[in-house]
Design a binder for these strands. Structure first.
Lengths: 192, 192
DNA sequence: CCTGTATATTGACACTGTCAATTTGCAATA
DNA sequence: TATTGCAAATTGACAGTGTCAATATACAGG
């Protein structure tokens, strides 16, 4: 049964088409027209589901955050009793996702490209942040450094490390060539 | 004396025009044609100085890195004897530059938009990295964490913190509202 | 069966990067 | 000085983009 109109699941098909473009050619290639071509519809069909390119990209980012959240859960984060190991598992998931899908990871934090007023999107980033905050809080307050500062430091170091590593900024380092990441070492350095 | 052709200093004029567009409307607005308009020349004039948009953006990024490097030097980084205070001064310069010129800071690390083979550009990022590495090395090697991992951790935390703060990801925090940054606290947390 | 509404199509507009062909100005050389 | 050559800037064109308006289609509810 072919249906010339009323695709039925065009919204999901557009997100999948956009993800293909994102993975293969980067976010610049995710244009409305190219996404529509990939889904086999006309160049103006997406407007019914996404009012503009930003809305399309926001839907793609939400998809990516769902993936990443699932990857964090898959590490057994919940069952790990030691907060330090929890954080390391958290970075592990981020790092693995970033290396496996670099274009997705790079893109999903590009707030300048996304609709920051979208409650689903902000809800996902907030919940990820809260996960870190609650874990760090379990460590208690060490001398001279507030818990909140430690949370900020942890979020900064995770995001900065993964981004810099994806972009190849650490390629000149000896043990980076082996592909062996050093996120355990930098978390040890921070949460000694 | 008006010169219809042979502008003379068009290359510099184009970079300045591009910086204006970057500051006011973001990197997306830095198009070849808009930059040419700002410099008062025809839309194809820039091709003689920059073969494509990437080359123009790379020249803009080099300008920004020179600014940032100068800001680091202006903190009295060289004369500070304590390595920890040197790092804090370093973050101070980054943070101040990032808040003063958010679009420039966000843009200058966007390697996907720049010509990574440009030796001037890579030279500037390398020298900034070396500055951190040499400072951290002066701290000696603490128990369980290699110097190199500490360098990676420091670069990650600096870049991640400034980026997350520029993008307003820490706005919900109590002492962030005051505008008082916490980079001293996070560096203390890392280099305790 | 008819009508309304959501969905998709076609067509158009202004904008972009980039290329080719052309014109202009300056400088060095005969 | 005159000419020749080169660098710089011009105009014009092309395909591709986001976005809007007008149109056609298909399905659901009365």
């Amino acid at each position: 049964m072919k249906r010339a109109h009323h695709h039925g699941t065009l919204k999901e098909a557009l997100v999948l088409s956009a993800l293909e473009l994102l993975d293969s050619e980067g976010v610049e290639a995710v244009t409305i027209r190219a996404t529509a071509r990939g889904a086999g519809v006309s160049h103006a069909a997406p407007v019914n589901h996404f009012p503009d390119r930003r809305a399309l990209l926001t839907a793609v980012a939400i998809h990516c955050f769902e993936e990443l959240k699932q990857k964090v859960a898959a590490t057994g984060f919940e069952n790990e009793p030691d907060p330090r190991n929890q954080i390391i598992a958290f970075v592990d998931a981020f790092h693995a996702y970033g290396l496996a899908k670099p274009n997705r990871y790079r893109f999903m934090w590009r707030r300048d490209m996304l609709d920051e007023t979208n409650p689903v999107l902000t809800g996902m980033t907030d919940s990820l942040f809260d996960l870190v905050a609650k874990t760090i809080a379990k460590l208690g307050e060490p001398a001279g450094v507030s818990v909140m500062s430690r949370v900020v430091a942890t979020c900064s170091i995770i995001h900065g490390y993964v981004l810099l590593r994806i972009d190849g900024n650490f390629q000149g380092f000896s043990d980076e060539k082996t592909g062996q990441p050093r996120h355990k070492a930098i978390i040890d350095a921070l949460l000694s």
